[in-house]
Design a binder for these strands. Structure first.
Lengths: 244, 244
DNA sequence: ATTGCTGAATCGTTGAACGTTTCCCAAGTC
DNA sequence: GACTTGGGAAACGTTCAACGATTCAGCAAT
């Protein structure tokens, strides 16, 4: 029965979130829009995912369920469900009877992730895409240019992820998209350590431009070829950074 | 009510279950061997996965958590965790406040699944593989031949899945393998409806042989080409079967 | 230094409870 | 008769409290 919940510093997970989007009901054509409020477990998962992505939770960190449940103001079981979600995305690893830890990737994992990327991205590019999907690839390229001009290395990395996400979106495959977003989430895990090497960024920015141009010209094979070589170089770069 | 569970075998999930535990991921690059007994939730998940795979639970069937918890002798929370696992594999879908249902795929899903397969399998084949990995591809081909000779259409389908699993195993990528096994699990969802067309099976059996031969000859490009055309035809076949 | 034990900290799982959402069906209205 | 309205029952989402099991760290004994 709703105890006072003293330390309600983080009770944002319980609010009914009854934000009446759209305010007054529009008369007439009321579409059956799903107002699906994500379950509490899902919200906890997204919160954790975010913290992991922005480096607030470093790889290897142990996540104690009781501590988290208290801190977030949810029950231990709910935290547990959130963990299950994150574990399925490989963002955390479960060690039986020991706890869950933020995943920390080794060089072999890096290679593995790039193997997946080569498979998915190249395939999507080879298949070509609709003009709109190519347009959003272009958008990501421009986003990168702006970030570079502004010297925003954070936004540069973000733009790059958008670029590659847009590439697989060309295939307009629900499953391929979710796989790719998980892979990108995994990459953020070791991006934090990758010191932003300006030279490399400049390099891939040009490469993205070339790939995009090839796509706009309809030469998917050339685009795929360039993408592949980029991925190889990128893997090499990441591997080098993480071998010490 | 669709297929009430025929076998009321109330299997106890608390007994031993000396099943091997693959790899306890390596948060440190170290692979310490663990004799971990799969958690109860995991065992429940595998049980349900199995029943779905063999058609005991048909697509669309509602899985009530209380009923299952009682039937399997575990708590509702545990069943819930198992559901989370299966949901992450797309074998069941969760409808908020309504329950979980065995996933039922539509034609669009079929296309989507094949899109993933084209990406992953072709990429793996293009990359080539070690002699041992090619040997297990050969093994799957022979397995298919034996099943065909014995008129075992069940085993034939199984062998075909082994074949394609072996193809992506060539890339020796942990992530690619798990993705593939999930995709294959999804395919079993609509394989039950696919009336076993003997002619088609004979067809793909020969195709597998050709692909395998190309691999053994080291001509990965030819193998990839044939695989791609097979996947296209297979998708066409499945789509045809499921449009009625 | 190694071995073995004990205790605290956590995890895994259970069982029960309560609020909410959905769904079904009967009653009521136009 | 078709449509809406209003219970209620059924099932889900979430919480809470508890107990056994496992792990780990520290300390005593060999």
């Amino acid at each position: 029965m709703a105890p006072a919940n003293p330390n309600a510093e983080n009770s944002r997970f319980h609010e009914p979130a009854a934000a009446p989007q759209g305010g007054p009901a529009s008369p007439g054509g009321m579409s059956r829009l799903r107002v699906a409020v994500p379950s509490v477990a899902t919200r906890v998962a997204t919160e954790l995912r975010l913290q992991i992505a922005e480096g607030a939770l470093l790889p290897g960190t142990k996540l104690k369920e009781e501590a988290l449940s208290e801190e977030l103001g949810v029950s231990r079981n709910t935290v547990r469900e959130a963990f299950a979600e994150l574990a399925s995305e490989r963002l955390v690893v479960r060690q039986p009877n020991r706890g869950v830890f933020v995943a920390s990737l080794g060089v072999n994992d890096i290679h593995d992730v790039y193997t997946v990327r080569r498979a998915i991205e190249v395939s999507a590019v080879r298949g070509g895409g609709s003009p709109e999907s190519i347009a959003s690839v272009r958008a990501a390229v421009e986003e990168g240019k702006r970030a570079a001009a502004a010297g925003d290395s954070e936004g540069l990395g973000s733009a790059n992820q958008h670029f590659h996400g847009a590439l697989v979106a060309m295939a307009s495959s629900e499953r391929l998209n979710t796989i790719m977003s998980q892979v990108l989430a995994e990459m953020r895990l070791f991006f934090h350590k990758a010191s932003v090497d300006g030279g490399f960024y400049q390099d891939y920015l040009e490469e993205n431009e070339k790939i995009c141009k090839a796509l706009e010209a309809g030469d998917t094979e050339l685009a795929a070829e360039r993408l592949l070589s980029y991925l190889d170089r990128s893997e090499e770069h990441q591997t080098a950074v993480h071998t010490s």
